[in-house]
Design a protein around this nucleic acid. Structure first.
Lengths: 347, 347
DNA sequence: CTGTTAGCGCGTTCAT
DNA sequence: ATGAACGCGCTAACAG
């Protein structure tokens, strides 16, 4: 357990002052070439690394970026984290990644933790941007931040994500175009995330454009899909509307739904069609591939870093950007052939 | 952008010295109850948070744990990260998560970064524990660490993971028991990870116990499975051994393999059987479920934290522990029925 | 019980 | 081109 080597050690080693060493380490101020070489030699010989703690204390910048995501095990956020990690590395920043488990209290305490670590900015996806204590605290502390995946309709906060409303509306069009008229939606609880709400609203809007009502709505816990099995069993084992097509507000839910449906003896897509949201790899790899809305998760992460940096350096109040999504056809949405396709009403 | 509130601010606010404030904040030393209350009131009123940077400087402990994993988008490591994150949170530590992208150079530079941030310990899964410059650097710096997933056979480093060799050998037994005799393996490149090597060696060992040779070995890039498609196409479109069963050294690879096989007109498990390794959710959700070796990823993360703490506090040289794995049956390994099952040779 | 003081390692004036 | 000295915010050791 060797004591950590400090700037003083290498100054002594070179017979120089710590000021000079600091200059060459930070490449600031004029230093004689020969001196630079001597210092650099000592640095690599002794294995010196400037202490970020001391630096943070002195410069009021820790070169870290706080990150809060709902869950690391959701591929969507894992990809986003990977994207932002890669981008921030190229900029010399180190991300401090915390997860909130879709919990408002944890979300807030994560912000407190990040504040304590004096992060230079925060990249986060909150449960609900409209009522987030975390964002309030960030505003209060004056720490710049950029939302990821949340795209608030009202506030003018920096954000990068996809237009969930429009995408969901497009999904509705696709499902209708395939001839389905008895359509259901499976979603995370609206009280939890704004994305679930936006996707629901967009989907409804898309249906209503065609004069179609949503036949079933199932809401489940977003972390472990509690209640999915019972809800589906009830729908397919009891009288009532039995959708021929479902829209799931995310791919994890879609995959779980498929498994449940098969359990109930309904095959996807032969008996029932299904569309997801996110475009995660697991959905693309299955056969037939999951029909879904692919969101550019990696890019959302990297763009969020850039947006944050723009905010910091140019002090521009960038209201954020919407990235484009892509409907991937997959094979889980098929034409409804059992009954003749009813023509859509006027649109 | 309000200036950050320091210990001095709240001392002034209370008409006390900073020492007293520090005492109540850290709950150390005797302080009058009334004073405690006054300080606490001021703390929450002004929104004070002790600066971790200053603390780290003073106490030589940053209350952070460095984490290095190959990739955030691999569910195995994402789960591990989630497990360790949760556990370290309960202990008051904040994890600093970096990924190496299976790259030795990035692995080392990640260690340097963590050292600069003065982490109190490091949890990492390294490409190859036997030749890791990262581990050397950690030893040199005297920073305690615990390996995750790597289980080195020679060194006496702390580690937590699963016995890849034995698990792979068991997979071989299962495949043989199902009657298969023409068996292939698909793996990440051996030069890259020790896990791939251990699983290969274990699988070979299991086959050899029964006097069976490995019919095909396909090695692909671990990050994007480059070369998988071509290799499989070559095998199934040209004369030569065409395995009736494959062992894939991880589930991501297994899923990709299934997709490729279907592309080639071979159905899993009707035409060819397949076993994976890891037990990721995406494999469990598909139908039929992927037969695999489930590793306790979450637990590997949390146990690694505990192992590290034991090392730090008890200064015990804990050589690490092997957690148990579990063969999950799934449905992608089926009895070979086309040809009569050949009896296994003596074992 | 409370206050004073000395650094932790570093970047940054201001001298030289 | 280089050095001396101060202080970032905090904890710990010592006084009172």
């Amino acid at each position: 357990m060797s004591r950590t080597v400090t700037i003083r050690d290498i100054a002594q080693h070179c017979g120089l002052s710590i000021a000079t060493v600091s200059r060459v380490v930070n490449n600031k101020g004029a230093v004689r070439a020969e001196t630079v070489a001597r210092v650099e030699a000592a640095v690599s010989a002794l294995g010196y690394r400037p202490s970020m703690a001391a630096r943070a204390l002195k410069t009021a910048s820790s070169m870290t970026l706080g990150v809060i995501i709902p869950s690391l095990t959701n591929p969507v956020f894992a990809e986003t984290a990977a994207g932002l990690q890669q981008r921030s590395r190229t900029l010399g920043y180190t991300p401090l990644i915390l997860s909130s488990d879709y919990d408002d209290a944890l979300e807030l305490s994560a912000v407190e933790t990040l504040l304590a670590y004096q992060v230079d900015g925060v990249l986060l996806t909150v449960n609900d941007a409209a009522r987030s204590a975390a964002l309030q605290r960030l505003d209060e502390a004056g720490v710049p931040y950029c939302l990821m995946h949340n795209v608030p309709r009202e506030q003018i906060t920096a954000h990068v994500g996809v237009d969930n409303f429009c995408a969901a509306a497009e999904v509705a069009e696709r499902i209708l175009a395939a001839g389905h008229r008895c359509i259901g939606m499976i979603s995370g609880e609206f009280v939890r995330t704004d994305r679930a709400r936006d996707r629901h609203a967009g989907f409804l809007s898309g249906l209503h454009q065609a004069g179609v009502q949503l036949a079933q709505l199932v809401q489940v816990d977003p972390v472990n899909a509690t209640g999915l099995a019972q809800a589906l069993a009830a729908i397919y084992n009891q009288p009532g509307a039995q959708p021929t097509a479902w829209f799931c507000s995310n791919d994890l839910l879609a995959l779980a739904t498929i498994a449940q449906l098969e359990q109930l003896g309904r095959r996807v897509p032969d008996d029932v069609s299904l569309v997801g949201f996110d475009g995660i790899q697991a959905g693309a790899l299955r056969m037939p591939a999951l029909t879904s809305v692919r969101t550019p998760n990696l890019e959302i992460g990297s763009t969020a870093v850039d947006t944050l940096m723009a905010q910091r350096h140019l002090s521009a109040l960038d209201t954020g950007c919407q990235l484009s999504y892509q409907l991937v056809a997959g094979g889980t949405l098929t034409l409804l052939t059992d009954s003749p396709v009813q023509p859509l009403s006027e649109r």
